[in-house]
Structures are given as structure tokens and as C-alpha cells.
Amino acid sequence: MDFEAMREYLPLFKDALALTVRIGWQGVLLAFLIGIACAIIQHMRLPVLRTVAAVYIELFRNTPLLVQLFFLYFALPKIGLRISAELCGVLGLGLLGGAYMAETIRSGLESIAPIQSESAQSLGMTGMQAFRYVILPQAVSRSVPGLIANVIFLLKETSVFSTVSLMDLMFTAKDLIGMYAKTMECLTLLVVFYLIMLLPVSVLGSLVERRLRHAEFGP
């Protein structure tokens, strides 16, 4: 191991981490917004919008992020719509993630037996109250493990960004290997930096999960 070289590459990896985290989290945020919107549309069974959401979810769940990025970055300019590489990354992650988030939230909502809502209403709650105080807390607590898994999945998907010329962690490592052929050093740094990015998410996620279990089972 050439530690001197590793120290030299460190600033480049830091830049790459900053870019990966920035685009990654913007994408995750967008994914949450889209996911919540779609889940509500589907849960409320809103006409027309429901079909649109279903088509969107199936379209983006069943195509790889790589293909979506290619489409956004290389195909859209042919019809005069140019999007910057960074925006492509955010949009790609957001659209892919939105489909997954929607499904996770929806399955959480659907996992609560309808009888609970009916019981709450027979006790005098309005439909909105039943949803707010009975259904939602349980649904959220059931969705959280899936949502956290989605977040980690999305952050790892950033590794295909090289295709649209974004210098994310993966591309930075590949690029340095191509130039200086220090494979062991670069790949070790790569693993370490991915852990720096994802371990906190994973640990925090477990904490949140445990905390939210209270909604279902009490303290």
C-alpha cells in the first residue's frame, strides 16, 4: 500500500463525497416528496391521478437508474431539452426513489386492517381523525424500516453517475486507477468513503426504527 499516494488522492475523494452526498440527499428528498404524494393519491383512490401514479411507479421501478440517466442526459437534448448533469442525477434518483417510496408507504398504509378505521369511526371519530390518530402512526412505524432501506439503496445507486460525467465516489476511484494504476489504494479509499457516507445513515436508521416501534407496541 502506497500511503503517500492515498494522502494525495484524499482531497479528490472528499470532493467526490461532497458531490455524492449533495446530489444523493437532494434525490432522496425529492423521492420522499414524490413517494408521499403518490401514496396519498393511491390511498385516497383519487380518479385519473391514481392511474397516472400507477403508470409512473411501474415505469420507474422497472427500468434501471442507468437507463433513466441515459435518457435524461443524452436523449432529451435531442429534442431541445438540456438538463445539467447534476440536475439529471437529482431527477434520476428522485424519480426512481419516488416509485420505491410510494410503494413502501402504500404497503404500510394498507397493512393496517380496515376494521381499525371502522372501529375508530364507530367510537365517534371523523374519518380524518381516524386516519390521523389511528392509522397514520401505525403505518409510519411499519414503513420506516423499508424507507430507510430505500434511502441507503438510493445513496448507493449514485455509483452509476459516471455515465453522465458526474465525479461521484465510484467514478473518482475508477478515474484515478485509470491514470495512476494504484488499484489497491484507490479501492480501499473508495470502500472507506462509502462507509463514511452510509454507516451513519444505517446506525441512525436503526435508532429511529427502535424509537418508532413505540407507536405500535408502546414504551
Binding site: 443524452f74 459516471s162 455515465t163 465525479m167 467514478f171 475508477k174 478515474d175 485509470g178 491514470m179
Partner: peptide, 27 residues
């Protein structure tokens, strides 16, 4: 293109030029 002599040359001799890197020729 990542890993080509053009990349190495520009990184070394023109560090101020902003590079847009791809990993395949087609892209």
C-alpha cells in the same frame, strides 16, 4: 475520456481547464 493520455496530459499541463469526464467513447 477517463483513463486516456489526453486526460493525463490536460490534468498535468492545464490544471485550470475544467474537464468533463466520461468512461466510454460512445458517451
Amino acid at each position: 475520456i477517463s483513463g486516456t493520455t489526453a486526460e493525463t496530459y490536460l490534468v498535468k499541463n492545464y490544471p485550470d481547464i475544467k474537464l468533463q469526464k466520461y468512461d466510454a467513447y460512445a458517451e
